[in-house]
């Protein structure tokens, strides 16, 4: 395949070297930011827990029911006690990490896959369609409180974990469109983009090879923070009974069950909430850390 002159703006070697040094610089500054590293550790811990859940858990989270051992305190057989059906709370928490990670990745994935290309095209081409159609739809979508939008969509699509995360993901799309668009608009005005245009690169090549890679920083930050929101939103919907089913080991549905036993067994509500808090804290630390690393002005 023949290469056009546009591929050499700047020369591939220069671009490669510049990107490598940018990444090295990024990781060096990231490693110096203790809170960001703490966030990354929590994130990795969540992934490992989710992946190795069958080996970490001590009981089956759904089917190991022991009616002779309901609502037990933490003890020998059950590290964190049992729930109203005698299921092991620790094992349900461990499997809950899977559902939380799935909720975060899928819902934010939906928003990224739909929101980023729309923001990219709108920010690059602009004009009537961008200003009067797409951005007004984005405004209208952002007029809905996110949880109410998710509730309404979950109601229409029907409850269940899958529909809940689709509803959450759709709610995130406008923020990704907006962030990508504004970043693309600022990058498009820079000299290297004008240089690429001057040597005859076509718009799609400029967008995907030059503009998008240079617009990724705020999208990365937004992705991390949106994952934190997605975990809380999924837990909220499951708590209300519109997400995961009560038997599924979602942290939100565990809180739903625990609400009925606050006076008898307060710990039943404590553990899943603590898990949500720690994981969301991890994502927030990670997001803040990445933002500070990418924009050193914030680090004061």
């Amino acid at each position: 395949m023949s290469r056009t002159a546009a591929d050499s703006v700047p020369t591939p070697d220069q671009t490669q070297t510049r990107r490598e040094s940018q990444w090295e610089d990024f990781f060096r500054r990231f490693a110096r930011n203790k809170l960001a590293v703490a966030g990354a550790v929590i994130f990795v811990f969540l992934i490992l827990t989710a992946v190795f859940a069958p080996w970490i858990s001590t009981h089956d989270p759904i089917y190991d029911q022991d009616y002779s051992a309901i609502l037990q305190s933490p003890g020998h057989n059950h590290l964190l006690g049992t729930d109203d059906l005698g299921r092991d709370t620790f094992s349900r928490l461990v499997y809950g990490a899977r559902l939380s990670l799935e909720a975060a990745v899928v819902s934010v994935g939906i928003a990224l896959v739909i929101g980023v290309p729309i923001g990219l095209v709108c920010g690059y081409f602009r004009g009537f369609w961008d200003e009067w159609i797409v951005m007004r739809i984005v405004d209208a979508m952002q007029a809905f409180p996110s949880l109410i939008l998710a509730l309404a969509m979950a109601a229409v699509l029907g409850g269940g974990f899958g529909n809940a995360i689709i509803a959450i993901g759709i709610g995130f799309i406008p923020s990704f469109v907006r962030i990508t668009r504004s970043q693309v608009m600022s990058v498009t005005n820079q000299e290297f983009v004008q240089a690429a245009r001057a040597v005859g690169a076509n718009d799609w090549r400029i967008m995907f090879l030059h503009v998008l890679p240079n617009s990724l920083a705020p999208i990365l930050v937004q992705t991390t923070l949106a994952m934190a929101s997605a975990i809380i939103a999924e837990a909220g919907l499951s708590y209300l009974g519109l997400g995961a089913k009560p038997e599924e080991p979602s942290w939100g549905s565990m809180l739903n069950v625990a609400q009925g036993y606050l006076t008898i067994d307060p710990l039943l509500a404590f553990w899943p909430g603590l898990a949500i808090f720690l994981v969301v804290l991890g994502f927030n630390l990670l997001g803040d850390g990445i933002r500070e690393v990418l924009d050193p002005k914030l680090d004061r």
């Binding site: 837990a235 909220g236 809180l255 625990a258 509500a269 909430g273 808090f277 969301v280």
Partner: peptide, 11 residues
């Protein structure tokens, strides 16, 4: 910012 307010409510 990280604490789920519904859990805080329960606590």
């Amino acid at each position: 910012m990280s604490v789920p307010h519904f859990w805080l409510g329960m606590m």
